[in-house]
Amino acid sequence: MSSTAAHPLSTPMHNTMASPIVQAAAWLRSATFPSERPLINLSQAAPTAAPTEQLRREMARIAIEDDTAHQYGPVLGLPDLRNEIASQWNAHYHGDITSNDVAISSGCNQAFTSVMSTLCAAGDEIILPSPWYFNHKMWAEMNNVTVAALETGPDLLPDLQRAAKLITPRTRAIVLVSPNNPGGAEYPAELVTQFYALAKAHRIALVIDETYRDFDSRTGVPHYLFQQSDWRETVVQLYSFSKAYRMMGHRIGSIVASPARLQQVEKYLDTVTICPNQLAQKSALWAMQNLSDWVAEERLEILARREAVAKGFEGLKDKGWVLRGCGAYFAYVEHPFDMPSTELVPWLLENASLLVLPGTAFMPQGHKDAEKQLRIAFANADLAQISQLFDRLHQIEL
């Protein structure tokens, strides 16, 4: 006889917030849009286009000709890919990284969860600048790790003095994302160095997620972390191949950390996925070696969209809109309406065919500003759609 009683659910998992991306997808399933006002989806920070044709042809070739692409591989990733990352990162950061400092993961989210699992146990604490990337917060909740919210200023940059006051004996890491998700802010190199010094002084980790590194508007070295002689004692860097090479569904990311840290990461990865996807790794290696010019063109296109978004919000100032941050894939804004963001987002979907995310997805529960904020992920909108976005925002009267 089958039982109708529900299976027990762990309290941390029950208390973990739901993904706003999942909620947004649910809204779309029941939504319809008039032909004269098609949907502009500004909710998800991942490319919707397929990889370039050259890369797809190489993927097909590997799948057909390379039998090892279908077998288990090293838990920490293919040696050739780890070598290539170390080499290119050293050129980019003027750093001191070896292949033994590099591991490959099944996407950047897994890079984060694997590293944090080596740093934290239930009851420990991490510091996240707010607004934060919601999956970072979700991992902490489902593992009973306390998040100390580091409130950012009007420019969305984290404050060093505020961070220092949040450190307790249970603090295990400070997590930075630059260019930032959701805010778009690019953290100045000097500020990142100051956070490195703070983390080092307190013997905690500085975890820097650079998923959107390839779309930084700045030229030159974005930070000096890998130029520090003892960076391995403090620094962990995370990266994603999803954005630069449009390899979202292939789930491939990387970790740069000390070999001692990666030995512990290896236990996690061996338990969760055994090894990263072999086809994805071989494809990523080819992409790194052959698509630098293409990535540079993609960067310029994203920067052009960023400029158009910034200009568009300049024209909305008189209506009360405030652009808090704009960079990488994101604009983070304050809206002028009395309606809270959690109600405004479905209203915009129904009445303006615009899908964005509310600030409540990125802020502590009950934060006074969350209901005035929206995240707009513009990377998948071309310049014509960005123009339509602002035409529709101009027309809103609430």
Rank of each mutant, 00 (worst) to 15 (best):
L303V: 08
A164T: 14
R56D: 05
R232W: 04
P12D: 06
G325V: 02
T32L: 03
Q44I: 12
I64K: 15
I255S: 03
S353C: 08
E307R: 10
A26M: 07
A361F: 06
L150F: 07
S99N: 12
R56N: 12
Q264V: 01
L150T: 07
L291Y: 02
P158A: 10
F390W: 09
I274M: 11
L9T: 14
S87R: 15
E65C: 09
D101W: 05
L28M: 09
S10P: 02
G320P: 01
Y212V: 08
P34M: 04
N83P: 00
S353G: 06
Q263C: 02
H394I: 00
D270V: 00
R218S: 15
L316H: 04
L355W: 03
T360G: 04
F195D: 03
G184M: 07
N90G: 01
R213I: 08
L225A: 08
L354P: 04
A63K: 11
S87G: 02
N90R: 14
F390P: 08
L166T: 11
Y239L: 06
N143F: 00
A331V: 03
A25Y: 05
T219I: 11
F195A: 04
M1N: 14
N135P: 13
R57S: 12
L76P: 02
K267D: 06
L279I: 12
M116E: 10
I127F: 10
W231T: 09
S292V: 03
I127V: 15
R61C: 04
I204H: 10
D338G: 08
A49P: 00
A379Y: 00
D124R: 10
A24K: 08
